[in-house]
Simulated assay, not measured.
Amino acid sequence: MSAAPVPQPAAEHAPPTAPAGGTALLAGPRPVELRLLLTPPPPRHAWRLVLARMGAMCMVELQKLRHDRTELYTRAVQPALWLLIFGETFTRIRAIPTGGIPYLDFLAPGIIAQSAMFIAIFYGIMIIWERDSGVLTKLLVTPTPRAALVTGKAFAAGVKSVIQALVVVVLAALLGVALTWNPLRLLGVAAVVVLGSAFFSCLSMSIAGIVLTRDRLMGIGQAITMPLFFGSNALYPVSVMPGWLQAISKANPLSYEVDALRGLLLGIPAHLGADFAVLVVAAALGVTAASLLLGRLAK
């Protein structure tokens, strides 16, 4: 007579049975991607979120430059002509008093500021194009604050201007301009160029929020760029200007940018503290104005 089979005990750690509905994926250790889908990441602090979105907007703008570098080459032509023709000519005739330094050395920082301004002052055309193509509307409905959107674009203009300034510095060095190569001073030059470009790009975006069309903005941009340039100390010292032009120069942020660049690049006396303060305040006011007027473009 055969013995009855003894039942085997159930395994203590048997794998769980997949329930109906295909939810077996939820059992056991989950992959990282699945955990991110089921559990949201910890929230960022507000200031970190704003900085991250500002950086993202800046990178988006710079990606355009990465795919098309034509703008860098074409924009280098005008400063090269100023240095080669205007600078060399007025250095020879000694018509403008520059405090004992060659006129070409005096002119080079002014041309750096001018070329940066010319890049930034037409930045509003790009934002109007984004409005016309529907990109701006999509950006405005995201949680990104308008100030972060404007600041990202403004500092992207600043980075482009730094690249342009580097071209002018190399050209000036080839022409024999006695520039400093102190790394700390060059970092200061980059900061000055970024702040100045941020202000002028925000000025352009503010005008875009008022005029709303590319044709009007182009006309206004062309109308104000040369007065800003000639009404500053980029080409001649303030002391040789008539009284009314000196008053305009003191209210012109470009004058403070040029003064800071001369002090950093040439080592001549400058009011660096006041220059930086004016540029920071101007950039902050520009971001505020452009942020307030940005909504008009989406209407």
Rank of each mutant, 00 (worst) to 15 (best):
T39Q: 10
P29A: 15
L34D: 13
I119P: 01
I125S: 15
A4Y: 01
V135Q: 05
R94K: 15
F86K: 10
S115R: 06
Q8V: 15
V77F: 12
T70P: 01
G110C: 06
L65P: 05
R146Y: 08
P143H: 04
G134K: 04
M54P: 01
L139F: 11
V32I: 12
F122Q: 05
V141F: 03
I85F: 14
S133P: 01
L25N: 09
Y123G: 15
I85H: 05
G100H: 09
R44C: 00
R146W: 00
T70A: 11
Y103F: 04
G99W: 09
I121K: 02
L149F: 07
I119Y: 02
A108H: 00
I96K: 13
P16W: 11
P145W: 01
F122H: 09
L136Y: 06
T17H: 11
A95Q: 14
I93L: 14
Q114R: 07
R48C: 10
L51P: 06
A27I: 06
P43A: 09
L136M: 08
M117K: 00
L62V: 03
A120Y: 02
M59C: 06
V135C: 05
P79S: 03
E130R: 12
P9G: 09
D105T: 09
A18I: 07
A113G: 11
P102V: 01
V135Y: 06
I128L: 12
Q8N: 08
I93W: 15
V77H: 07
P19C: 05
L38E: 13
D132G: 04
D132A: 09
I101K: 14
G99T: 07
Q114T: 06
A147K: 02
P29Y: 09
